[in-house]
Design a protein around this nucleic acid. Structure first.
Lengths: 337, 337
DNA sequence: CTGAAAGCGCTTACAG
DNA sequence: CTGAAAGCGCTTACAG
């Protein structure tokens, strides 16, 4: 079977390859008759343009890189799902790039990635969305980028986020309305801007309900299950013990639940537990975790879609969107007795 | 800043571009002096060859596709980690392709993928590793492929698996040695060859220990948490109730644990529970799940590495390897009282 | 509205 | 051991 290229199509249709190219790219200046003729030959010969040849001529790869470093596999999968959806829609490919590096090593790693893979653009997910050195490096290299779930908004970039601060506010207020006043809080990883945002929402809810903030109720976690265990140990040993715990993500909340169960505490009767993210584990344990759901796929899809649009037409104006987070109540929180 | 290409390097080094190409590809027939001179210019000019131009000339994309459809995010992430490691090592890129299609739709979807993305090869992960129609389609199209965790071994393909049957045998025997005789079993998804393998191991362990197989103790699951809940409901209502449950993966085992807890059963005092896969959830719940760990990253890495090697040099002989699975005991299983 | 020429950055096949 | 020419399958810039 002979390979079918733009040349076969051109000769078969009896036109020049430039004309075929015009039809391919939906360019104007082709008569309807010619266009249809060519389109028909596409089908007959089952022609698909070679993206590599296209890439060489246009100096682009049709590849978007997706950068992440997240302990939550489900979060990563959701990010990929959204990014992939946008890529498929716009005939791009997605290159995943998990990366644990920081600082200078991170920069040189990304530089190498860009140089070897010739990415057309890069989508930054937490915690990278808010790394100033990385963002300014990409700017200096003129690599288009989009940021997902970033806390910092700049004027000239593509950024799609959801409202972490508001989500944390709502879940804290949910606990307060159930009668809780001593609500412990477990922070996330300091690299993630969400950590600060969620803490702010917690404090704002306390403040707006006239509850004094108590530093002793706050523990430093890092989003991992393991850090949740450590924080839980301290919190559950507190005297008096808080009546509720709000962990900055579901893994840490699950850790609190595990430790509470081991200590013979009944959840939610003896203590209420809330998480954040609506990870699968939130409904895979018993009792199910009250948590906050964010539209991760939607955020990433919008970000990547906008990024590709920007690559194809750099005139596009900046795109900054904030999507809503949603409170999901399950069995792990209840009214105080 | 001017782009640095093979031409800039050639003129800067005072050689022809063919010579530069030879150095680039580590070909013979270049004098050591010339080679070093060129290598030096590479560094000075910070030159990296353009993979797209290379791809066009060689009619290859340097892209491997990774096909999967798995409810377990952690499994997918592990697959990706292994595949990525092999790709990085051999200067390939990885294209992820989650896909829920089956039958004809699957074939045409993959055909489209291959045609538009010009993959050089494809790595099949469960359940696709054992889809005969897909495998023969790839063969007919002469697309190199490798299979991960396949049960069926063919003579002429690349296949890296771990021993599911043996793993299931060992965990069942572990339960038997703890004194259990009535051990319920929850099957996985029928599309996955592991489902049959694990069931076989379970039956072999019963047989080799003189325990009669009881069909009423077997439930059909599909690897999802939800299916585990359904199966658990039936099993835990059995009279007499089995003293142990072996679920074909950890999600379903976690579901059994949840339901048992809701029914006020103590695990492992009242009932032992075992899973398979050593997914994160196995250690994120209390009690932790006794399970079987497979070297998923290692399997995938070997498969992809071998695949790329085969692409570069189709003379390579078939590569079939079986890696060991390992029993991990946690708190969810104990001796019968 | 259409096309001939040149070029993208490499490699292949050949000649010396 | 080295290189000039042609080509991979497209697009760009230009001419008509």
């Amino acid at each position: 079977m002979k390979k079918v290229t733009i040349n076969s199509v051109a000769s078969y249709a009896g036109v020049s390859k430039k004309t075929v190219s015009r039809v391919l790219n939906n360019e104007p200046n082709v008569s309807d008759a010619t266009r249809e003729k060519v389109l028909k030959v596409f089908k007959e010969l089952d022609y698909t343009p070679n993206p590599i040849a296209r890439g060489l001529a246009q100096n682009r790869s049709f590849i978007i890189g997706c950068l992440y470093d997240n302990p939550s596999k489900s979060y990563i999968t959701r990010v990929q799902t959204g990014a992939l959806a946008a890529c498929h829609e716009l005939n791009y490919n997605l290159l995943i790039h998990p990366c644990e590096l920081r600082g200078e090593e991170l920069i040189s790693n990304i530089e190498h990635l860009i140089q070897t893979s010739r990415l057309d653009g890069i989508v930054l997910t937490p915690p990278f969305s808010d790394f100033p050195e990385l963002v300014s490096f990409l700017k200096s290299k003129k690599i288009p980028y989009a940021r997902v779930a970033s806390a910092v908004l700049e004027d000239d970039s593509i950024s799609v986020r959801s409202n972490d601060e508001q989500g944390a506010f709502e879940i804290t207020e949910h606990l307060i309305k159930l009668g809780h006043k001593e609500i412990a809080f477990i922070k996330g990883h300091p690299d993630h801007s969400a950590t600060e945002q969620r803490f702010k929402g917690y404090r704002r809810a306390l403040a707006s309900n006239g509850i004094e903030f108590d530093e002793r109720l706050v523990e430093e976690g890092n989003f991992s299950y393991h850090s949740g265990v450590d924080s839980a140990r301290t919190i559950l040993d507190l005297n008096p013990r808080p009546t509720a715990v709000f962990a900055s993500n579901d893994y840490m909340a699950a850790a609190v639940l595990k430790l509470a169960t081991q200590m013979q505490l009944r959840v939610p009767d003896d203590i209420s537990i809330a998480g954040f993210d609506n990870a699968p584990i939130a409904r895979h344990i018993w009792p199910g975790l009250t948590t906050i759901a964010q539209p991760v796929e939607e955020m990433t899809q919008q970000a990547v879609k906008q990024l590709i649009t920007h690559i194809s037409d750099p005139q596009e104006s900046p795109y900054q969107v904030t999507l809503e987070a949603k409170l999901i109540t399950r069995e792990s929180t209840a009214a105080i007795k």
